[in-house]
Write a protein that binds this DNA or RNA. Structure first.
Lengths: 134, 134
DNA sequence: ATACAACTTGAAGTTAACTTTAATTCAAGC
DNA sequence: GCTTGAATTAAAGTTAACTTCAAGTTGTAT
C-alpha cells in the first residue's frame, strides 16, 4: 500500500511542510518520487513517523531521534549507544515530569486562591489572604 | 536586605544575562540602579523570581507570566482573567504530562528491548524479536 | 489546449528564550 | 593617577523546529 503526502499529513496531523522537512533533515528516508516528482510513502514511513511521534512525546530532540534511527541500522554494533541514549533520556523525562508536577501544584494553588477571590467578590465579603491559605 | 545581580544569579542558578533579560521584557520591575549604575534587588524580586520559576515549571510562556503579574496588580478587576489563564494552563500541563508518560513508556520499552539485545550478544544467543515482546 | 489544483523546490522568515559581543562605566586597591 | 574587575548597554547572534514564500511542475477536467 502506498500513500501521498496529504494522506500522511492527515494521518499524523502534521502539515505536509513538516513531513518534507523531516525528509530534508534525514528523519524520513528512501522516499520515492513518482515520475521523479510527487512523493510516495509506504508502511515503512508510517512506522517511522509513529516512532518519531513517540520520541517527540518523550521530548527527544529531532537530532537525537535521527541518531537513534542511524544506530538502529546496526543494532549489534550500537546497542550500547542506544541503551545509553534511552537511559539518559529516561532520566530527563522523569525530571521534566517532576518539574511539571511541581508547576501543576503551583497552578492549582493559584486556582484555589482565585476561586476564593471570586466567591468573596460575589458575596461582598473580605478577600482571602494568600498567606492564610499557604 | 538587598542583593546584587551576582547573588540572585547564584540563588536561582540563572545567568546574570537572563536576569537582565527578564527585566528588559518587563518580568522584573522596579529594579533600582545604585548611583544610576549597578542593579540592586530586594525581597520583592526574590519573590517574583520564585514565582517565575514555578510558572516556568508549569510551562507557561514568559509572555503569559508577565500578563499574570500585570493582572495581579488589580486582582479585583482581573480575577476572572487570571482564573481563566490558570485553568487553561492547568489543562495544557495535564496534556503534556500525559504525553510525557506515553513517551516514557515508549522509552522504557526500548530500554527493555535493548537490554535483552545486550544480554543476547553477551551470551552469544539469538537476538530477541521486538514483535515477540510487544 | 488550457486551466486548475495539488505538489514541488530552495531559500528566507518566524518564534521563544536566551546568549554573546564590544564598547563603556564605575569603585576600589595599589 | 592607574589598573583591575565586576557591571553596564544596545545590538546582534543562536538554537530548534518549523513555516512561508515565490516560482515552477504535473495530471486531470473542461
Amino acid at each position: 500500500m502506498s500513500y501521498t503526502i496529504t494522506e500522511l499529513s492527515k494521518m499524523f496531523h502534521l502539515p505536509a511542510s513538516t513531513i518534507r522537512y523531516y525528509e530534508k533533515i534525514g528523519l524520513l528516508e528512501n522516499v520515492e518520487h513518482v515520475n521523479s516528482y510527487r512523493r510516495v510513502y509506504d508502511q515503512s514511513h508510517i512506522d517511522r513517523l509513529n516512532a518519531i511521534e513517540c520520541f517527540k512525546k518523550a521530548l527527544l530532540p529531532l537530532a537525537e531521534i535521527k541518531a537513534f534511527f542511524t544506530y538502529e541500522k546496526d543494532m549489534v554494533a550500537n546497542y550500547e549507544k542506544i541503551l545509553d541514549m534511552m537511559k539518559t533520556q529516561e532520566e530527563k523525562t522523569l525530571e521534566t515530569m517532576a518539574d511539571l508536577e511541581a508547576g501543576l501544584t503551583h497552578l492549582q494553588k493559584k486556582i484555589r486562591y482565585y476561586s476564593l477571590v471570586n466567591e468573596a467578590i460575589k458575596n461582598d465579603s473580605p478577600l482571602p489572604n494568600w498567606n492564610d491559605l499557604y
